[in-house]
Design a protein around this nucleic acid. Structure first.
Length: 211
DNA sequence: GTTCCGATTTTCT
DNA sequence: GAAAATCGGAACA
């Protein structure tokens, strides 16, 4: 099943990403994301994504009126990396969609490790198997991605290679948002052991005590 | 097995 | 000053 061969695979270009975010998010499931950071090859098959849209999407960083220093990259050219830091601990890796001037990005939420597994285990401080990349913060850490990659184009540090589309792609509400979580913009391979959550059922969103 | 809570920094108000 | 597209460890059942 895992017969991905880097030598015969072709990279996805800007044309793939210059389309509606929702379409790109769905079609990215099954593609192979490869990192060449730290002089090592690592990566895996994308098994879970989420779409983040423009100002109309309350869960998107572009929902705030206008361009800010943080969401600027979401408005930029398609096929670029949008990386940001949150919760004091975690990097999030997104791929920019839509034509330049329109906000949009796809969050990479989970990978099935295929290449450079040992490298990723080291970056993940010894975690192995499904624990390498079954969550967005884990994906970025496993691939060695940090804020330095924000705004870069695909094709140097990170590349997405074409691969046969997943036979089945399920969709559900997005995870971890304080607003906009009802929109069915999360895409994943149903039944895969490598997707985040779903193993123990959905946890109800908890709100931080502000009182 | 499940549920709760703290970490820690970037960005925006 | 507060919240954030989360994770992992501790506590409890």
């Amino acid at each position: 099943m895992n017969t991905f061969d880097l030598k015969t695979a072709s990279p996805l270009g800007p044309g793939f990403f210059a389309r509606p975010t929702e379409i790109v998010a769905r079609e990215l499931v099954g593609k192979v994301l490869v990192s060449r950071l730290d002089g090592a090859l690592s990566g895996g098959k994308i098994v879970e994504t989420e779409a983040y849209l423009d100002a109309h999407d309350p869960g998107s960083h572009a929902s705030t009126k206008g361009v800010t220093a943080r969401n600027r990259v979401m408005y930029g050219p398609p096929g670029c990396l949008y990386v940001y830091f949150t919760y004091g601990n975690h990097h999030m890796l997104n791929l920019v969609t839509e034509s330049e001037g329109t906000a949009g990005a796809v969050l990479i939420r989970a990978l099935e490790p295929l290449l450079g597994v040992a490298v990723m285990e080291t970056r993940r401080r010894g975690r192995r198997g499904v624990e390498i990349a079954n969550g967005p913060g884990k994906v970025a850490e496993a691939l060695g991605v940090d804020l330095r990659q924000n705004g870069e184009s695909l094709g140097s540090s990170l590349t997405v290679y074409d691969a046969p589309p997943a036979r089945l792609v399920a969709r559900s509400g997005r995870v971890g948002l304080s607003s906009g979580h009802d929109l069915p913009l999360r895409f994943y391979v149903p039944g895969s052991d490598y997707v985040s959550r779903g193993r123990t059922g959905p946890k109800p969103p908890r709100r931080r005590n502000t009182a």
